[in-house]
Design a protein around this nucleic acid. Structure first.
Lengths: 72, 72
DNA sequence: TTGTGACTCCGAGTCCGTG
DNA sequence: CCACGGACTCGGAGTCACA
């Protein structure tokens, strides 16, 4: 088992994709999602294991449904 | 802020829906997912705030994509 | 068959900084 | 602008006895 599970990496990559598509820096996104900048960084790299609550926060900040993180 | 956020309750309800649709008890499901029965109970009631790793584990045990938890 | 309170332990999540 | 580290707090993971 790698230290960065594939499902986490995929999730993080999707978050990053949606964030950059909006032209936001990690810091601006973190502020909008009311989360720490370094934590968002960790989530996007797949090293962090976010909770359901955080996942919902991220979705809300991005203005998307949670489904978007797992589609495609 | 309620102690059981609506998005967690919705998630739990969806898990329960998928479990019962397979005719599984919490105990049987917990065994298949390699989790404790009481933990599964907490998730279904929205009391627990599962991590992305656990969410993926549940999806695998149910044989569905994680998307299924958030669709409809 | 399921809900619940209480428990331990480790990781979720924050805040400081660096290259 | 971002990756990464250290140190910290508190809440999630995982379990049990009991209702």
């Amino acid at each position: 088992m790698p230290s960065v599970p594939t499902h986490r990496a995929a999730f993080g990559a999707r978050v990053r994709e949606l964030r950059t598509a909006r032209g936001w820096s990690q810091e601006e996104f973190a502020h909008r999602a009311d989360l720490d900048r370094t934590y968002v960084s960790g989530v996007e790299r797949g090293v962090r294991n976010p909770t359901l609550d955080v996942i919902n926060h991220l979705a809300k900040a991005l203005g998307v449904d949670v489904m978007e993180f797992f589609s495609r």
